Computed example of a mutant assay.
Amino acid sequence: MSSLEISSSSYNQETKLPLSPPLVEDSAFETLGKDVNEVEGKSKDIIKLTSEKLSIDEVSRLVISPLCGAISLFVGITRNNFEGKKVISLEYEAYLPMAENEIRKICIDIRQKWPVRHIAVFHRLGLVPVSEASIVIAVSSAHRAAALEAVSYAIDTLKARVPIWKKVWDVFEDKT
């Protein structure tokens, strides 16, 4: 299991807005009582590769910002069929150091292409049963176009570049 939070470039925000409770563990108590200009000054890239069940709500909450009017999500779930066979689950493996590094590079690419605020990429490892999420990507931005385009780019690029491998378990295969 691995979890990584990366801070990225920031915007200058003049208007003071009420703080919402911090959602990232590392900064839970550091942000209380600070000026919004300080708190909202840093954009976040949150990357997590985990064997735990993914929470769509948790990932979407991590990218909320009072500076943003849009959050776009991509949720990839295990479907019950593949190439005409009944699927019972998927299994994911990753080369963690390289996978995290490649996802970090994708976040950098996104920030060079679109004016986004926060990016969260969570990918599940191990067995993922039918109807459960294997990946959740969330991006926040001031306007919808940037968030939508960034999420689409993130999933397409992740599938092409990141060393995460998928094994399809169907009813004809024995997992022992």
Results as ranks from 00 to 15, higher is better:
12 N>D: 08
13 Q>C: 01
15 T>W: 01
17 L>Q: 08
17 L>F: 10
18 P>I: 04
18 P>N: 14
18 P>L: 12
20 S>C: 00
20 S>E: 11
20 S>T: 08
21 P>L: 04
22 P>D: 01
22 P>I: 00
22 P>F: 06
23 L>Q: 13
23 L>S: 07
23 L>N: 15
24 V>L: 02
24 V>D: 00
24 V>E: 00
25 E>A: 11
25 E>W: 09
26 D>E: 15
27 S>W: 08
28 A>Q: 15
28 A>H: 03
29 F>W: 11
30 E>L: 10
30 E>W: 14
31 T>G: 01
31 T>V: 00
31 T>L: 03
31 T>K: 08
33 G>F: 02
34 K>Y: 06
34 K>Q: 14
35 D>Q: 10
37 N>C: 04
37 N>E: 10
37 N>R: 15
37 N>M: 07
38 E>A: 12
42 K>I: 02
42 K>E: 11
45 D>Q: 13
46 I>K: 01
49 L>G: 05
49 L>W: 03
50 T>A: 03
50 T>E: 07
52 E>P: 05
53 K>H: 13
53 K>V: 11
53 K>I: 13
54 L>N: 09
54 L>T: 09
54 L>S: 14
55 S>F: 09
56 I>V: 12
56 I>P: 06
57 D>P: 06
58 E>A: 12
59 V>C: 10
60 S>N: 08
61 R>K: 15
63 V>K: 10
64 I>D: 07
64 I>G: 04
65 S>Y: 01
65 S>T: 14
66 P>R: 06
66 P>N: 12
66 P>L: 00
67 L>H: 11
68 C>L: 01
69 G>A: 06
69 G>Y: 02
69 G>I: 01
71 I>Y: 01
71 I>M: 01
73 L>E: 09
74 F>I: 07
74 F>P: 05
74 F>M: 04
74 F>E: 08
75 V>C: 10
75 V>H: 04
76 G>W: 13
77 I>A: 03
77 I>K: 14
77 I>M: 03
78 T>F: 03
79 R>N: 07
79 R>C: 09
79 R>D: 05
79 R>Y: 05
79 R>V: 11
79 R>L: 01
79 R>I: 09
80 N>R: 10
80 N>Y: 07
81 N>R: 04
82 F>H: 13
82 F>R: 12
83 E>N: 08
84 G>C: 07
84 G>R: 06
85 K>T: 10
85 K>N: 04
86 K>G: 02
86 K>N: 07
87 V>D: 04
88 I>W: 00
88 I>N: 11
89 S>I: 00
89 S>T: 02
91 E>V: 06
92 Y>D: 14
92 Y>R: 15
92 Y>N: 13
93 E>M: 00
93 E>F: 08
93 E>H: 06
93 E>W: 01
94 A>F: 11
94 A>G: 06
95 Y>Q: 11
95 Y>M: 09
95 Y>A: 04
96 L>H: 12
96 L>C: 01
97 P>A: 10
98 M>A: 06
98 M>L: 13
99 A>H: 12
99 A>G: 07
100 E>Y: 03
100 E>H: 08
101 N>P: 00
101 N>S: 08
101 N>L: 05
102 E>R: 03
104 R>T: 13
104 R>W: 10
105 K>A: 13
105 K>E: 15
106 I>T: 05
107 C>A: 15
108 I>V: 11
109 D>H: 05
110 I>M: 09
110 I>T: 14
110 I>H: 08
